[in-house]
Every structure is written in C-alpha cells, then in structure tokens.
Write a protein that binds this DNA or RNA. Structure first.
Lengths: 151, 151
DNA sequence: CGCTTGTCAACAATGATTGTTGAAAAACAA
DNA sequence: TTGTTTTTCAACAATCATTGTTGACAAGCG
C-alpha cells in the first residue's frame, strides 16, 4: 500500500474526493499487519474520529481494493479481511481458533497447473491458505491464564 | 462420501436418527461434483421432497461435515460450498465469474512450511485455491448464445 | 406397543454487508 | 475567495446466508 499522501494523490487523480475520514482510514491501514476486518478498521478509525461510520469504512476499503492498494481476502473467518501488503506476493496462515492471520513470506513453487489438469479452466491466480493454531492459541498461558482454554 | 446405506448405519451408530429427509439429502449429495451450496442442495432435495426445509438441509450438512463425510469449503463465493469428495486429497479451481468449482486432481508438493517461516504457528492443513475462468465463462458461445455474455 | 429422545418445519433473529437519502463537504473554475 | 457541481457522509433500513427457538412429530429402542 502506498503512503497516505500518495493515496491522496491517487484518489484525486481518479476523480475521487479525499476527505478527513478517508485519510484517517489510510493512516489506520498503514503498516497494519493484522489483516483487519472492516469492523476492526472501523474500531481503529473511531479512536481518531468518533463519528466515522462503518459504511464509510466499507466504501473506502472497496475503493482501495479497486485501486489494488489493498487486497480483500475471504479466509473463511466469517468476514472479509483486508491486507495492505500488496507489494510482495505471499500466502496466509490462519488460526482456526481465534481467526488471526499472518503473512507467510516463504516463496512457494510457482503453482502452475499442468494444462492437462486444468480442463479448459483459464487460471489467473493461486492462493494457499495454511490453517492451524497461532502461538497464542496453541498453548494455554502457563500462569496468569486470563480466559477459557481449549474447546 | 459413503453410500446412503452406509451413512444410515453411521448416523445410527452415532446416536443420530435417520429420517426420510436425511436419506434424501444423502442421495442428492451422492456423486455430486458441483460443490453445491446449502441452497443448491435444498433445491435438489426439494425436487424429491417438496416440504423439506432449508434448516434441515443445513443441519444435515453440518452433521455430515462433523462426521467428515463431506467437506465444507469457504471459497469466497459468498456461501459455504459442500464437497462430498473427501477420499482423495485435492484442491479447487474457482471461477471468478460464475462461482463454479472444480476439483483439481493433480497432486501437489506437500506444502510444508519451513519451520523458520511458521513462526510458532502449528500448521494443520493447507488448501490451494486457483481462481480463473471456467470454460463456459471463458468464451461466449459462438452461436446459439442463450444468455447475456461477459460483463 | 409405548416411551424417550432427536428431528422437523415454520417461524424469528443474527451478523456481515449493501442500498437509500438528504445534508454537508471537496474539487474546480472564475 | 466565492459559487457551482459532484462526491461523500452518516443515519437509517434492507439484504443475504446462516443460526436460534419451539411445539408437534417420528425414529429408535426395549
């Protein structure tokens, strides 16, 4: 994702208007590695602008996705997640327990399909989703446990 | 997925009751390669039993998934898709246009993560989703076109 | 055959996301 | 700066997939 200033430029040059709300969202997304949901972005933005509406957040996220400045991901966690990292190709680790997402930076084989197997499909992209348990959900806190553990 | 008769056995031995509705759903799923949504299963089942409710379909699909007789997939098409093929491991081709899903039977590298990259994540499984255009959406019918084409 | 318990179907409810609308603010030109 | 046009904002209400609730009913078991 570009910087807030660059995004402001980009939005203007695309005929979109740049409002305080949008710049707030730009800042919130900047460097966010948590793959936030729209709700999470809204919560973070609300800390700066109490009046910002969830609808506005959705709208701006869609705009950013349309301009390919963020990626919108459906990782099976029940809500769309947004990823500001669109510069280096990567895959995702998803925690089955808490739904947290981490980028997996290890490069993977090209994942091209033997044409014989594609059977007429024209394949554009491939994503790998690794599912498992994040460090936090993997083991209960040895002491100072602060929530229920396991199933 | 097992045969309807085997599923009847399995359900009984698990303390679940087997009703005409469930057997109807068993039959509908049998050999279905379209990765149907719950709605699609309901539509197919309704052809045999007009009164079957969508809720019952959801319930039975969840039961089957719990017994690992079908897989429930979130492939980003807006609804959960169900896959009766749980015998041979495979991945999926998803059409961006119409949402149709096809199994990809080509075996893939084990997709294990270099432990250094997992960063504490305990990885249980990996899925690959290939996105592109299915043969039908790829090219308009040369003649006898029967629906609107393209965007 | 009768009892117990799970299941059915018809609701209503949820949660994520999108549509609508009048008011307000951004961009642009003079 | 001011006026004009167009987009965006925020507060609704609506939608879609999915799940919760409940009383009637049927499956399984003795």
């Amino acid at each position: 994702m570009k910087t807030p200033d660059e995004l402001t430029e980009l939005f203007r040059s695309n005929g979109r208007k740049v409002t305080a709300q949008r710049q707030c969202i730009f800042r919130v997304l900047q460097g966010d590695v948590t793959h936030p949901s729209a709700e999470a972005v809204h919560a973070a933005a609300s800390r700066e602008m109490e009046t910002i509406s969830l609808k506005t957040v959705y709208q701006t996220l869609h705009d950013l996705a349309e301009l390919a400045e963020i990626a919108s991901l459906d990782l099976g966690t029940g809500m769309t997640r947004f990823d500001p990292n669109v510069n280096d190709p990567h895959h995702h680790l998803v925690c089955r327990q808490c739904g947290s997402v981490r980028d997996l930076v290890a490069p993977f084989p090209e994942l091209t399909i033997p044409d014989s197997a594609a059977l007429g499909f024209e394949v554009g992209s491939a994503e790998i989703v690794f599912r498992g348990l994040c460090p936090d959900c993997r083991a209960p806190q040895p002491r100072r446990a602060r929530a229920k553990v396991g199933s």
